[in-house]
Design a protein around this nucleic acid. Sequence first.
DNA 1: TGTAATTAATAAGCAAGCTAATTATATACA
DNA 2: TGTATATAATTAGCTTGCTTATTAATTACA
Lengths: 160, 160
Amino acid sequence: MDYTDHRAGFVFADIARFRVRLFDRLLAPHGLTTSQAWVLAHLFIEDNLPQTELARRMDVGAVTIGGLIERLEARGFVERKVDSEDRRVKRVLLKEEAKSIGRIMAECGRTLNEVAFSGMEAEKAKAVMDGLLSVRQNLLDALAEDTDIKSATDILLSKK
Amino acid sequence: MDYTDHRAGFVFADIARFRVRLFDRLLAPHGLTTSQAWVLAHLFIEDNLPQTELARRMDVGAVTIGGLIERLEARGFVERKVDSEDRRVKRVLLKEEAKSIGRIMAECGRTLNEVAFSGMEAEKAKAVMDGLLSVRQNLLDALAEDTDIKSATDILLSKK
DNA sequence: TGTAATTAATAAGCAAGCTAATTATATACA
DNA sequence: TGTATATAATTAGCTTGCTTATTAATTACA
């Protein structure tokens, strides 16, 4: 690929926005947003997690997670309980209300994938997905190399 | 690809977020954000566009564009002028301040691409990029088929 | 033991996107 | 002409995500 290809500047952002727009529409009838659903998805894998652990698994800040959970709690999908051994920690628990939605979320996700990759051969879709996972890891590494702004700039521009 | 692959649920969103985080850091010293830079990029291609036309080209709402331009104007990168033939229209013009930043933006974008696709063969990167463009179009089509919520749900779920 | 450093969560505040509603202007057409 | 419709931009208000700062509790260690 030509690295001066300016299209990379918008495809990633556009795809993310379009996906969210569609998924939000699918979930709206159930009182959920895309990000909130994603929190539930993580709790389906493992319930009763501390907020910080959820944030870590979702690569999101502690503040962002706090807001998501607050809204999920307000809508009755989860509840927070202070950890008995470490009172700084709040553990997030799925409530019954949420459990029935898992299947719907999975179905919507599958449908959205079908739409996104429609007209693409399975082989190619697999290759794209594979490539995306390494792009994601590359960016994550670049971010991890240094959280400091000036240094991040250095890391990126020093490779010029 | 297996359409039940849940990884699609986060790769796109993650890549978009990570890219913005890195690009924002690169642009911060110049008083710009990723989205604001993208507006300027469109004005470099064609200056003096109405806000609505910019919104259309960026696949963004009129309100979002309004906010971006307001901040760009406050920082002195652009100015708005009411169209003389249609007083509803405000045209956006690049100011000198912005023109010198074009080269920097291009350089940052190129560097970010290199980071994102590092370790990937050019051939594969090209294929991934190609696949992404059609994913983007697929989603855009799905959104365009019907703006209405219920109908969008139908479109997606009816393919089950 | 007691002070310092770390950690979990929250608060405050900004940018970006979205939707719905409003205002002002232009256009269509009866 | 005059009324209805359509369009451009803005306002208000929501969610997500980010950063920085604060509070409370825990852990490290002198």
